[in-house]
Structures are given as structure tokens and as C-alpha cells.
């Protein structure tokens, strides 16, 4: 759900275009004057950005602290907002490093992409990146929509993949935000891609506690919840494997400008290699459950996963 959430809030942002245009104009002025500064150290500073999404901010903090540990000067420009806003900043070189997600970013650059599975999506993303923007190694950590069921339900019908749903004898109800009803991963997509019939129940909390409650009550059998959402683990939910690529694969991937040199690239690629799916869930849980700030969570993670 959170992927769609990010995208939809990003869309909402576009509706308030006037406000944003002013904001961009102002920030544009600020960064332009910064860049004009002739100082040598200034031009060496790496600007790390992040989405206005807690999990993304933690990853950006890890990038920033890892680079600082390797001796780079880092400037943080975190919690910037949504894709429509910040991608432009990356493309024009105002931001040098940004944690992204393979699928949604590919869809942003190529809305009609046919790529669905992990490797295809990554390859297509590398090809579609505009001049001056580089896609570094992707992490195995994913943060994407998935059909989620309760463990009890999964065990009763021995469910592992979405395919297994065809053998479930009881009627299925899919719960999610209203817009999910007509999205490719709503009931229609489920029918087309997997031949599974499901009706739809709108629950407007984006895979939040009401959705989890509905799953546990049996009011719905399937919910669209983010794979990296700590509530999956906490509530003993099971994400069904999407073998046919109904959901666009969405791995954490660093997007970099030309200013990231070979050594910095190595540092970031080491971070990406060390960041596992379970590791990302654990990072998110620290933020949600302990309300720890991103910088603290990032510092702890780097102590446990040293990059140099």
C-alpha cells in the first residue's frame, strides 16, 4: 500500500502545483547561489536527499553517515517530498545521492513499461535513467505492495504464492484503499494475471491498523500491505509470493549524480549489499515502535554493518 500511497500523495502534490512551483523557485535560487561559491570544499560536498517517508529517510541517513565515515563532506536534504518534485532536482544535479525504489522510479520515467520482475525492472531502469543520472547496485531489500494474508489462513490452505489462491474454496475479499479497486493490482489484475476471483472492500487507512483488524476478523482475506511494513511481522501476517509479477518489483536502489566518484560508489554499493529485506523491516520497526530518529537508527546499523 505504501508504494501507492507515496505515488498518490505525490500526485496530490501536483495539484498544488502553484505552491510547489514557488517552493522550487526558492530552493532553486538557494542551491544555485550555493553552487556558485568558488570554494573547493564546497564543490566536493555530496548532497544526499530523501523522500518524505520515514523508511526512505533512514536509508538516506545510512548513505550519508557511511560517506562521512569514508571522509566525504555530506550535506543532507532529507524529507524533500514526492517523486514529481525531487527527481527534477536529481536530474539537474542539485542532489547527488538519493535512495529510490526500482519499480516506482522506472514507472515514473517509463509509465508504459512492461518490465515486472526484479532483474527486468532493474535493467530497464538503468537504461531509462536520463543523462547524468546513474543507477548504482540495487539492494536485496524490497519495499513494495504485496497481497498479505494471516498466518492462519495461509496454513489452512497451504498458501505460499498468489497462484495457490486458486485452490481456496471460500470466497475471497480483497481490502485496500478505494483506488485499489481499479488499479492493475486490484481484483481485475488478480483475475487477469492469476485467474483468482476476489471481491473488493474499501478500507481507507492504507494497509494500517483497520486493514489488519479486518484481516484478523476474517472480514477480508487479502490485504495490500507493504512488504517492509513492521506490522506484517508484528501481526504474524504472510505476504504471498508474486511469481507472475502482478506487482512491479521494488528494490531499494541508490540514484547518483556524476559527483559520486568510484570510491564513494563502492561505499554505497557495500551498504546496498548489506541491506537485506529483513534488515529493512528491522530498521522500519525501530522507527515505528521505538520512535527512534533516523540518524540514531542509521548509526546503529552502520556499527553492526561496517562499510569500510
Amino acid at each position: 500500500m505504501k508504494n501507492t500511497h507515496r505515488i498518490t500523495s505525490a500526485r496530490r502534490v501536483r495539484t498544488t502545483a502553484a505552491v510547489i512551483t514557488i517552493g522550487l523557485a526558492l530552493s532553486g535560487c538557494a542551491s544555485a547561489s550555493d553552487l556558485e561559491s568558488p570554494s573547493d570544499s564546497e564543490s566536493q560536498t555530496i548532497v544526499v536527499g530523501s523522500q518524505d517517508y520515514y523508511s526512505n529517510e533512514i536509508i538516506a541517513e545510512i548513505y550519508a553517515q557511511a560517506l562521512e565515515a569514508a571522509g566525504y563532506d555530506v550535506e543532507r536534504d532529507l524529507r524533500i517530498g514526492q517523486r514529481e518534485v525531487y527527481v527534477e532536482e536529481i536530474e539537474n544535479g542539485s542532489i547527488d545521492l538519493f535512495p529510490e525504489y526500482t519499480g516506482p522510479l522506472l514507472e515514473f520515467w517509463e509509465p508504459d513499461t512492461a518490465a515486472r520482475l526484479d532483474q527486468d525492472v532493474y535493467d530497464a531502469l538503468v537504461d531509462s535513467a536520463p543523462e547524468g543520472v546513474r543507477i548504482l547496485d540495487r539492494s536485496s531489500a524490497t519495499d513494495q505492495d504485496a497481497y498479505t494474508v494471516t498466518r492462519g489462513f495461509a496454513e489452512r490452505y497451504e498458501l505460499k504464492t498468489i497462484d495457490d489462491l486458486t485452490d481456496v474454496p471460500e470466497p475471497l475479499v480483497l481490502g485496500g484503499n478505494s483506488e485499489g479497486e481499479n488499479r492493475p493490482n486490484g481484483p481485475k489484475g488478480l483475475k487477469e494475471t492469476y485467474g483468482v476471483d476476489a471481491s473488493f472492500a474499501p478500507i481507507e487507512d492504507g494497509g494500517g491498523p483497520l486493514t489488519v483488524k479486518a484481516l484478523q476478523d476474517g472480514d477480508i482475506q487479502l490485504a495490500i500491505i507493504y512488504t517492509a511494513d513492521p506490522s506484517v511481522q508484528k501481526n504474524d501476517l504472510v505476504a504471498l509470493e508474486d511469481t507472475r509479477g502482478l506487482f512491479l518489483a521494488s528494490h531499494v536502489v541508490p540514484v547518483a549524480s556524476e559527483k559520486i566518484d568510484a570510491e564513494a560508489e563502492k561505499v554505497i554499493n557495500t551498504v546496498s549489499a548489506a541491506l537485506t529485506p529483513a534488515g529493512l523491516v528491522a530498521l522500519n520497526a525501530q522507527s515505528v515502535d521505538e520512535q527512534a530518529p533516523a540518524s540514531t537508527i542509521a548509526k546503529q546499523w552502520l556499527e553492526e554493518n561496517p562499510v569500510s
Binding site: 498518490t8 484503499n177 478505494s178 481499479n182 473488493f200 474499501p202
Partner: peptide, 20 residues
């Protein structure tokens, strides 16, 4: 009512808002 059920005119507002 449309926040937790498939009921009423609120459905148009929720679906319209998020689905553009």
C-alpha cells in the same frame, strides 16, 4: 461511511481523491 465500508457518496470522494 466509505472509510470502512462500500457505502454512500463518500466512495466517489475517496476513490476520486486517490485515483486522481
Amino acid at each position: 461511511a466509505a472509510y470502512t465500508s462500500n457505502t454512500g457518496l463518500g466512495r466517489y470522494i475517496f476513490a476520486g481523491l486517490k485515483g486522481r
